[in-house]
Design a protein around this nucleic acid. Structure first.
Length: 710
DNA sequence: ATATTAGTTTTTTTT
DNA sequence: AAACTAATAT
């Protein structure tokens, strides 16, 4: 095993194979390189079977990438090695041992939207007003409890008698019961239930402890309590647990991640060794200096000394935009200025998904290829959720959430009232909606007309389910489309939106086709419907990144974790936006925002561009935000101030005057009451003008009292 | 049962 | 500004 291209610390991290090991890996310090070499080293030098290794990554994409790199190192695939996210690893265990906790192994996974529906339905049943108590908030309370391994009973023990919590307790109980009845698990259950299996069944625990002789966990700073618990359980016999992470990059507190996991690793695992990787290979000295200065403001951190042998490189560019459009144009101009080979050398990182729109518009207008990661994900679109609900119901007929979603989609004359009647019938008998549907004739409350409509729906599902054993996923998909009449209905509507939806359903079909192709060489059970449904539900935004379609990448700072790009734009560096107004409450929240900023800065290899906009619209209102405090935390000498280059506005798309060609961006003008200012944009005769000391106004060119000064 | 309208609510980040 | 919800009309 050739370790000559590793530095001393990296090599130590590879060779310290036994016992608990924490690798504190600063940004860009070659962490993935260490992990892949470590796995290769275990296999080649220590003669460990790949099947005895478990490696947990943060995204499926990272797992795929790492598998490839290990294969390259050892000259063949590491067959039998378990590598994936906590959720996908747990899923594999759950499918095998679901019976231990009285679940059927073909359970459905509920995503956040499904969870919200369950919470809402539960609240309705309990007659709790969803106006007075936000279901999304309740979902979060439940999820946070689960992250701490607190089930409904324990939750009641802790909070019982507390008036404020009475409702949470009742909802949580019903929520969990509903999931069980629907043979479904939410994201948190995947981990919790796996732990339950291991705790309940000594033999299963022993089996996996014996199997996973070496365990590696990446991004350890973003694990939560139950994930820590799982790691501790699995490594219980041998303690060969290698955790890799960086406390300064912990950015998932809102999801239950606990930064203490990494800070207290030594306490949790006795005789743990700690290795620090402090040499950065990614960024220029300038970029690293900026990052170090920003993160040093955090009080609750363990100091470290991240350094690089790279040269100083370019200064960091800073631009104060007038408007969001101006900011987008600035980015566009810089991309054209610095582009070498391909557009994927650039990434635009922002705090919130909504910010992608302005950039998208500018790129579209100028024919620049781009990819947006995350946002409204493919699988969250209405039509995709509809078709998936058909598949889910066929796979798991007791899934009432899926049932209710599609019972009248496309419209077949089954109204709300009829579903309620069916639901009452089912509830009285303690059966699922589908089971009630099977005996629809016996549901007295329904009119014969409603019964007919219901039995039409029943035949769609039943006929496909009957043949399920002989069909592959693609066949099922085709039958769903055909029998449900879903596409026919969309075609009939014929509007633009329906056309897009038809295209999306078509794209889902190619996803199915791809899925079948990718599982050709696997065991039969790996390519079945329940695997397809689970894999798509557990997909991260970044997992959909297409490497073969080079374009400017746009994503949130969260999605950018673990990635690197030659040129990075950190946009929307404004107070209230970044740091977010939601997190300006406590120091702890603010420190997490600062870590997010640190993550953003350290994604950049060569150049970093920081920008903010004087005006920004949110909620249909235009706001003015001060520049982000994080900008002040970067030393001035590292920064080059890009002039408020009016050129950047005028050179491209912004200035195509049609109504009044006499007003151009950059012109100094005078207004009767607002005084002097500069034209930012002339959009079909609507002028955007930055008035000195008066802010930005929009005025009509042909009626406003404006005169050109120069 | 469904289409239309008016009123309301929302965006922080995600497996 | 867009998307969701509830009330009202067809």
């Amino acid at each position: 095993m050739d370790l000559s291209n590793l530095n001393k610390m990296q090599r130590q991290a590879v060779e310290t194979t036994d016992g608990p090991l924490l690798v504190l890996a600063g940004a860009g310090s070659g962490k993935t390189r260490v992990l892949t070499h470590r796995i290769a080293y275990l296999i080649e030098e220590k003669d460990i079977f790949p099947s005895n290794i478990l490696a947990i990554t943060f995204t499926n994409k990272a797992a795929e990438e790492m598998k490839k790199r290990v294969a390259r190192l050892i000259g063949q695939g590491a067959f039998g090695m378990w590598m994936g996210t906590f959720h996908s690893i747990c899923l594999r265990i759950l499918r095998r041992h679901a019976e231990v906790i009285n679940y059927k192994s073909d359970f459905t996974i509920y995503d956040v939207a499904d969870q919200n529906t369950v919470v809402k339905n539960s609240m309705k049943q309990l007659e709790i007003d969803t106006k007075r108590l936000n279901p999304k908030h309740v979902r979060n309370v439940i999820s946070m409890a689960k992250n701490e391994k607190i089930g409904p009973e324990r939750f009641e023990e802790i909070h019982g008698g507390n008036f404020k919590f009475e409702q949470y307790i009742r909802i949580y109980h019903l929520y969990q019961k509903t999931l069980k009845n629907n043979n479904a698990m939410d994201f948190d259950d995947l981990i919790n239930k796996t732990i339950e299996i291991l705790q309940l069944d000594e033999e299963v625990l022993k089996k996996y402890q014996k199997k996973f002789k070496y365990i590696l966990i990446d991004e350890y700073q973003d694990t939560n309590f139950v994930q820590y618990l799982l790691a501790a359980l699995l490594s219980g016999g041998h303690h060969n647990l290698c955790a890799v992470g960086d406390g300064d990059q912990s950015i998932y507190k809102f999801r239950g991640a606990d930064i203490r996991n990494i800070y207290e690793f030594e306490k949790d695992f006795s005789e743990a060794k700690i290795i620090k990787l402090e040499q950065n290979y990614r960024s220029t000295q300038t970029i690293l200096d900026a990052a170090n200065h920003v993160i040093s403001r955090n009080q609750g951190r363990k100091p470290k000394n991240l350094w690089t042998a790279n040269g100083k490189g370019d200064q960091i560019n800073y631009y104060a935009a007038y408007t969001e459009k101006d900011e987008a144009n600035y980015v566009l101009n810089k991309i054209e200025q610095y582009k070498e080979k391909s557009y994927d050398e650039f990434a635009i990182l922002y705090r919130t998904n909504a910010q992608s729109r302005n950039f998208e518009e500018v790129f579209m207008k100028n024919n620049i290829p781009y990819q947006i990661i995350g946002g409204l994900k493919f699988y969250e679109r209405m039509e995709i959720k509809d078709v998936m609900a058909y598949l889910k119901l066929i796979q798991n007929p007791v899934d009432d959430i899926a049932f209710e979603r599609i019972v009248n989609v496309p419209k077949r004359g089954i109204g709300k009232r009829s579903v309620e009647k069916l639901s009452d019938y089912a509830e009285d008998r303690g059966i699922s909606l589908y089971e009630a549907l099977l005996e629809i004739e016996k549901v007295g409350a329904l009119s014969s007309r409603a019964k007919n409509a219901f039995s039409e729906f029943r035949e769609i599902i039943r006929s496909i389910r009957k043949k399920l054993d002989h069909l592959n996923v693609l066949d099922v998909f085709d039958m769903v489309i055909e029998k449900s009449g879903y596409l026919d209905d969309l075609r009939l509507k014929g509007d633009v939106q329906s056309t897009t939806r038809i295209e999306n359903v078509g794209e889902l079909k190619s996803v199915v086709t791809e899925f079948i192709k990718s599982k050709e060489n696997e065991e039969e059970s790996e390519g079945d419907l329940s695997t397809f449904l689970a894999e798509t539900t557990l997909q991260a935004g970044i997992d959909t990144l297409a490497d073969d379609e080079p374009g400017v990448l746009m994503m949130t700072l969260h999605s950018a974790k673990g990635l690197e790009f030659p040129n990075v734009f950190l946009v929307g560096m404004e107070e209230n936006l970044f740091p977010s107004f939601m997190s300006s409450g406590t120091d702890e929240d603010l420190e997490e925002e600062r870590r997010l900023c640190y993550v953003g800065i350290t994604r950049a290899e060569k150049r970093l561009f920081l920008s903010h906009s004087n005006s920004r619209s949110l909620y249909g209102k235009t706001n003015r935000n001060a520049p982000s405090r994080f900008l002040d935390e970067i030393p001035d000498e590292l920064i080059n101030i890009d002039s408020k280059s009016i050129d950047s506005v005028s050179s491209k798309s912004a200035l195509k005057t049609s109504k009044d060609g006499s007003f151009k961006a950059g012109m100094k003008v005078k207004h009767k009451s607002f005084g002097s200012g500069t034209i930012i944009e002339n959009n079909d005769g609507i002028l955007t003008i930055a008035f000195d000391g008066q802010g930005i106004k929009k005025l009509m060119a042909d009626v406003a009292p404006i005169e050109v000064v120069s």
